[in-house]
């Protein structure tokens, strides 16, 4: 009962805060200047979602594939060589990575997608590796002993048991990806960065916010989406959330 009271107080407070913010923004004249860019926002959001979807999709497929490949018995000796490279990649600043991507691929959306993919793939590979490695050896022995083929062991035993950790990596990766996507503008990749950086250059807060607010909302939405996938896709017996 008390918890519910507290909840409704919170909700009232939040509504009031949003209202106050809206009133303030309106009073400052910001709201009209943000809404002025609404047609740009719609177009750029679509562009940015395309960037994110392609780069994240590539990163998930490649990252998980590399993780699986490096945990197969025959190739596991490469893991020790690959993992330091992956970790080294993670230490390079984002902007530097995009600059390198531009140097390799050239200006435009492909360079942005390439850069974002490289950026995003790191947490996915390392989580896939540690997720698969943490599957207890007796499970795999039991599976082998009962006559499962290697592929059946991977999909029926290893992946379901590693899925939670893998998806945690995907979640981190996606949030980084969405948060970094505005930088794609700097190498001609388009996206909401166009509004943000132009807004900064023109000292026009309305334009800046018209880019920044959707970017933030996209990040929150992406996190929510993967959270839901994590909740529903990971089998109940190995899902700490359920």
């Amino acid at each position: 009962m008390a918890a519910q009271d507290l909840k409704s107080i919170w909700r009232m407070g939040l509504l009031f805060g949003v209202f106050a913010l809206g009133a303030y923004v309106q009073a400052q004249g910001l709201l009209p200047s943000i809404l002025k860019h609404s047609s740009d926002v719609v177009y750029l959001v679509q562009q940015q979602i395309r960037l994110v979807a392609i780069s994240a999709g590539l990163a998930i497929v490649l990252g998980i594939a590399i993780g699986i490949w490096l945990t197969r018995e025959r190739y596991s000796r490469y893991a020790d060589a690959v993992l330091p490279i992956v970790n080294l990649g993670a230490t390079i600043p984002t902007l530097a990575k995009l600059a390198i991507a531009m140097a390799i691929v050239g200006i435009g959306a492909p360079a942005a997608i390439f850069g974002l993919t490289v950026l995003t793939i790191l947490p996915i590979v390392s989580n896939t590796l540690s997720g698969l490695r943490s599957v207890p050896a007796p499970l795999i022995e039991a599976a082998r002993g009962m006559g499962m083929k290697p592929r059946q062991i991977l999909w029926q035993v290893e992946m379901p048991n590693a899925m939670f950790v893998i998806l945690a990596g995907v979640r981190t990766a996606l949030v980084i990806n969405v948060g970094t996507a505005p930088l794609a503008f700097l190498i001609g990749g388009g996206g909401l960065g166009e509004l943000i950086f132009t807004g900064i250059d023109l000292m026009e807060p309305g334009m800046l916010l018209a880019g920044a607010i959707p970017t933030a909302l996209l990040a929150i939405f992406a996190d929510f989406l993967v959270g839901q996938i994590q909740y529903w896709l990971v089998p109940r017996g190995v899902n700490p959330l359920r």
Partner: peptide, 13 residues
């Protein structure tokens, strides 16, 4: 085949 660590698959009922 039965092993000491039991080896039931935690993801399956």
């Amino acid at each position: 085949y039965v092993i000491q660590q039991i080896g039931l698959f935690p993801n399956k009922t």
